[in-house]
Amino acid sequence: MSQPVKAFYTGLFRHTLDDKNRLTIPSAWRAAHGASDTFLATPHPDGYVAVLPPVEVEKLYEKAAQKALTDRDAQDAFARFFAASHAFTFDKQGRISLTDELRAHAGIDKDAVLVGTLSKFNIYSPARWTKVEERTAGDNLGDIMRRIGI
């Protein structure tokens, strides 16, 4: 009996938003998902859009469901987090729509850089992705990988 395929996201893709602010998601990333799979796009504090696939959304759902309604800090944090987030599915052409707020947060005008991080993916403006590349250039990447245990 074979195990279900675990979705993973690798690679870097440069895409341009269309006139309706839709962005095509790489077909390799869509392959493990059905038409009704719901993703969550959320603004990351470091200035990009983090996209959580269904399995990560489910983990987040469980964490949110475990917090008491009387836990004001947790409820406030979840309210702010989910107010800024956008749930979506892919359209028939494999595109998603980015809200104006998410695009503004990430500094995305027309061009975007999609970067896989294995269990999820991120959407950057080209300028912000360049900064990530600069921070991780040369020996810095090796040092970071050793520090995080990869």
Rank of each mutant, 00 (worst) to 15 (best):
R80V: 15
D139E: 15
K67R: 12
A84R: 04
A74Q: 06
A79D: 09
W29E: 10
I96N: 07
R14Q: 11
L118D: 05
A50I: 04
R147M: 06
I150V: 15
N21V: 00
S36E: 09
T10W: 02
A106K: 02
L17C: 08
L40M: 09
A87M: 15
D111C: 09
A106D: 00
A112Q: 03
P54C: 05
V55H: 13
A65Q: 10
I25F: 03
G149L: 03
R22A: 05
A28P: 06
E62F: 03
L17D: 11
K20A: 10
K131I: 02
A104P: 07
R95Q: 03
T117F: 04
A35C: 15
E56V: 13
T117P: 02
T38S: 11
K20F: 14
R22D: 04
Q93P: 12
V115R: 02
A50G: 03
D139L: 06
D91Y: 07
L40P: 09
H44Q: 12
R72C: 09
D139M: 08
A28N: 12
R135E: 13
A112C: 12
R14E: 10
P126R: 12
A68V: 01
I144E: 14
T130C: 13
F13H: 15
A83L: 04
H15K: 10
A104S: 12
V49Q: 00
L141P: 12
A74E: 05
E101M: 14
K59S: 11
H33P: 00
L114F: 00
R135D: 10
T136A: 05
P53F: 05
E133P: 01
H33E: 00
P126W: 09
D18F: 06
T42C: 04
N21M: 01
A41G: 11
E58A: 06
H33K: 02
D109N: 01
S125Q: 13
I148D: 05
K67Y: 12
I150P: 01
L12E: 14
S97I: 07
N122E: 15
A79V: 06
N122W: 13
D100V: 14
A68S: 10
D111I: 04
V5A: 07
T16E: 15
A41I: 07
D76K: 09
V5E: 08
L114P: 03
L98T: 02
V115W: 06
G34Y: 00
A127W: 08
A106Q: 02
R147L: 08
G94N: 00
G11D: 00
E133W: 08
Y9D: 08
R72I: 11
G34H: 00
D139Y: 08
L114N: 04
T42S: 05
I150R: 07
I150W: 09
P45E: 15
I123K: 01
V55Q: 13
K59R: 15
V113C: 13
P53A: 00
V5K: 07
